[in-house]
Amino acid sequence: MMLQIKNLEVEVENKKIINSLNLSVGKGEFHVIMGPNGSGKSTLALTLMGHPNYKITNGKIEFDGKVINDIPVDERARMGMFLAFQHPEDVEGVKIIDYLRLLLEKVKGIEPAKALQIIPSKAKEVWFSADMLSRYINVGFSGGERKRFEILQALLIKPKLLILDEPDSGVDIDSLSLISHKIRELYEQGTSILLITHYGRILEHIDPKIVRVHIMKDGHIVMSGKEELVEKIEKEGFKKVFEECGCNE
């Protein structure tokens, strides 16, 4: 298994947000998580990445056969995990080009000279111009630019597991299509995907047959199924779906 989450329980500020959550993502699989606002999707993503504010009070997370509960974030990243954030941070004063060059050098072992060739061409693929590369990380970025910059980093790093937390929120139609394409590109190169979203549109370029969908409610997964589940939720809304399945009990 690439990722195995067993009986996970997570607290934030002494408040239990996630409980008895089980989920497995195998190599070459494509999983989608949906769920109402506040159901704990981002909490799960940040916990998977090792954010210090999210305390695991029970259960375990295994990545590549290794329990990672106590492994710091940077090591998780170097093991092959990547989280594209719902709200990517501003880093004032740090130019994108300097950052990406360092990243490729330190994480991928790519020579700076080589990195300087790779970066601009990859950047172009997500519509980042040379000007853009000399701007500071996420500072003053539009919603769509932020999301495309997350994708750019994933394209450069080519992680084993890519967790995407709402890569489609706040992006226009064209960017959405591009991002969907790029997720497929990574998937086809062997990256396993765990995608958090509210809308089926981001799956535009993804083969529906490969997609497994999970619905989160109050910190755990109440339902799993195929792509049809996405359409059902988009049509009927969570309320109705939860009533039908008796998930409100």
Partner: peptide, 13 residues
């Protein structure tokens, strides 16, 4: 802490 986490989540020490 958040900006440090952001950069470290990409693999920087």
């Amino acid at each position: 802490e958040e900006e440090l986490f952001y950069l470290m989540s990409r693999g920087l020490k």
